[in-house]
Nucleic acid binder design. Structure first.
Lengths: 383, 383
DNA sequence: TTGTAAGCGTTATCAA
DNA sequence: TTGATAACGCTTACAA
């Protein structure tokens, strides 16, 4: 392995000069700069990163702590982190799939001395304490939970608002029984989305009678199972709100297998707005979440927090969650795409919901509130 | 920041003893071991990783070089890498989104001294030279291209075989005009899949007349556009083979929008077998690729290669690509799921393909070769 | 502008 | 079983 000494010898200078020359820094003679560069190129010198960070106590690396990088959503978050870090020429030391907080702590420990700071995504409660401990070692920015650790900045999604808006929209469409397929227990995002759903129902004066929750796990398979359970009930809901898109996909699949028309007999909505959502059949009404932005903003927050260490206090950003209205919930003007057919009433054999509000899409859209209309406009601007 | 010196002072021993005690290594008195541990715990000592790797010249870290982590497929590859690395208690220094080989090289350079080796995924040609240069600095394992860099082990997918098997299957189903929507130019996977398709046609005695390629970019949107282009042709193919699932999803969506029945009027197949493939409508016939295994095997290969450095020569693994037959290509026994309807002939207004072979699914399955049957069995065992 | 030398926080090699 | 002490490869005062 070639070290700085070899380069110094080759160029006929001291190692200090090599260091200065190669780091583009201050006063170095043009001639020696040339010689050093040539020597380094000739020997194919690759500076040792560990040694550099040991002396300079800067690593130019960000640690990333993730629960489990599964599927499209996480992959987008990481992309956001990666791209933004790359703009600052930072590298990423990633550790994921943390079953418990102990392994998370252990990972952070071994990162010590190799990172300048950390971005942590800890979607379950109880990891707060561990993160607080990590934050004593280096600056940490959190993704997801709202503001739990003192001194840490954070980015999160407007889960409650998004879920509430979706629920309100379904109510506007005339749905009176709206089931929710929840995310995994203890997951902060899942909890917040459930809360938004409940709050919207309460605000509309519809209590526990209209609500009905089913347990899911953020996977297609769990959505499929939940749909089967829903169909076994005597009184079916006219709408199902899944806490994420993956589960909504499973639900759509189950309803198709059972011959239940969507949105005719049952409306289905999701959360996340994955890339495939608009290509599903029917295209999925969902809540758009800027997964890329989640990662990107986290890194930006870290950078500003670090540059102004001590001066500024922690910041907490909440990324908006906007409704994206597509065909799976009905209510879009008929004929926009593939008119007729799926809009029909269908042989709704089971318990029809009292007021018969769930009919033609165009009519229902007219009833939509101004807020919803704005959401539609926004969503159309988005894509 | 607490260093080993602080712990030594607190425990009343030398730093050498602290190092030995904490590394669980050799002869340390039980009493001192206790005292050292207590001191470390009391002070919350986190060893400096950079210093450790400088002296020991082991980093316990694997560098990962990726082109662009986009979508489910890459995310699965990374999961495979991550989990397997975690089993060996290795960390991951990740750098992705490399536009060109220069930035790739630059990333690798800054990793020097911070990693023990590298897993590189370079799906475009021309990066071979850069990787060879990297491989002179530390052991490298390649994902994807077959065996291009001397001395590097590699894992790849049986792209050619998979694409050929899919094409042969479509031929068996009676299709005479099979279009292929290609992946991005210069992408090795895309090229190999195209080659498999062509080889299968040639082997079946069907030359350029049956083949027809459309340019895609591995995205849903590009698949959508390709389908539109296909539908504009006077003589439509009876089957479309997309070089990956994302494009197949776009194709399905376009055909649905245009009212073209799948598989009745047109069969659609993909490549990758993403998690959503079986939840699409119709469920997608595709080639299963073990993305997780790709990452996992790469790490395992790296480990064995490193443990037996010099002794053994480089190894090249090729992961099988197996057909997964679902509903989007027809040919599955009718009634397995949601019988009738989609299996009908449909109003195929355009150029019917001469021999009228594209009829009822059940009949066509009977014609399937033994090899295909085995594939079905395998696929059912898989999920 | 350049060179000398003192660290950075560990591990590893010797003696003791 | 322990303690000095010399690396590890680099950056950075401080001198020259």
């Amino acid at each position: 392995v070639i070290t700085i000494r070899d380069v110094a010898r080759e160029a006929g200078v001291s190692i200090a000069t090599v260091s200065r020359a190669l780091n583009g820094s201050t006063r170095v003679n043009d001639g020696t700069l040339q010689r050093v560069r040539e020597a380094a190129a000739k020997l194919d010198y690759w500076p040792n990163g560990a040694a550099r960070s040991l002396t300079s106590s800067r690593t130019h690396t960000l640690g990333i702590l993730l629960p489990d990088l599964f599927g499209e959503f996480f992959s987008e978050v990481i992309r956001g982190i990666d791209q933004t870090a790359r703009d600052e020429t930072f590298q990423l030391l990633i550790s994921s799939s943390h079953a418990d907080t102990d392994t998370m702590l252990a990972s952070a420990r071994t990162m010590s001395g190799r990172i300048d700071g950390l971005i942590a995504m800890a979607p379950d409660k109880g990891s707060v304490e561990a993160i607080a401990r990590i934050a004593r070692q280096f600056p940490v920015v959190l993704i997801s939970p709202r503001n739990p650790v003192p001194g840490c900045s954070s980015v999160s999604i407007a889960n409650v608002d998004g879920a509430a808006a979706m629920t309100a929209h379904l109510l506007d469409l005339g749905h009176r029984r709206i089931a929710m397929v929840r995310g995994p227990r203890g997951n902060v995002d899942a909890d917040e989305r459930l809360r938004g759903y409940r709050e919207a129902l309460r605000r509309a004066g519809r209590g526990p009678r209209a609500a009905r929750g089913y347990q899911g796990a953020f996977t297609e398979a769990s959505g499929y199972r939940a749909a089967e359970e829903i169909l076994r009930r005597r009184s079916r809901p006219s709408a199902v709100f899944a806490a994420n898109d993956n589960m909504a996909i499973g639900i759509l699949s189950a309803l198709r297998d059972r011959g239940v028309e969507v949105p005719g007999e049952m409306a289905v909505t999701g959360f996340d707005d994955l890339a495939i959502a608009e290509y599903l059949s029917p295209s999925l009404t969902t809540v758009h979440v800027d997964a890329y932005g989640l990662g990107s903003r986290a890194v930006s927050l870290w950078m500003t927090a670090t540059r102004s260490r001590g001066r500024r206090r922690s910041r907490h950003e909440v990324l908006p969650a906007t409704l994206v209205l597509r065909r799976s919930c009905g209510g879009l003007r008929a004929g926009a795409k593939k008119a007729g057919g799926t809009n029909g009433r269908g042989g709704n054999g089971d318990g029809g919901n009292g007021d018969g509000g769930n009919g033609d899409g165009a009519t229902l859209t007219a009833r939509a509130t101004a807020r919803k209309s704005r959401a539609i406009a926004r969503s159309q601007g988005l894509r």
